[in-house]
Computed example of a mutant assay.
Amino acid sequence: MKFMLIMRATDETIQAYQDVDFGEIMESMGKFADEMIRAGVLVATEGLDTADGVVVDYSTEPPVVTDGPYGETKELFGGFWILNVASREEAVEWARRAPMTGPGAKCEIRRITSIEEFPQDNVWIQKERAWREATGQL
Rank of each mutant, 00 (worst) to 15 (best):
M1A: 11
F3E: 01
M7L: 12
T13G: 02
D19K: 07
D19A: 15
V20P: 06
V20C: 10
D21H: 12
G23S: 03
E24K: 08
M26T: 11
E27V: 06
S28Y: 00
M29G: 07
K31D: 13
F32Y: 12
D34H: 06
I37Q: 10
R38P: 01
G40K: 02
G40P: 09
L42F: 08
L42H: 09
D49W: 05
V55C: 10
V55P: 03
Y58D: 02
S59R: 12
S59D: 10
S59Y: 04
T60K: 13
T60D: 07
P62G: 03
V65C: 09
T66K: 09
P69K: 00
P69Q: 00
L76G: 08
G79Q: 00
G79D: 07
L83D: 05
N84D: 15
V85P: 02
S87P: 05
E89T: 12
A91W: 00
V92W: 00
E93M: 07
E93W: 00
R97G: 05
A98W: 02
A98E: 02
M100E: 04
T101H: 11
T101E: 10
P103E: 14
G104V: 04
K106G: 04
C107R: 01
C107H: 03
E108R: 01
E108I: 04
R111L: 04
R111V: 03
I112Q: 11
S114R: 09
E116Q: 08
F118E: 06
F118Y: 13
Q120S: 05
D121A: 05
N122A: 12
W124E: 14
W124T: 08
I125D: 00
K127D: 12
R129H: 07
A130C: 05
A130N: 05
T135K: 13
G136V: 06
Q137F: 11
L138G: 07
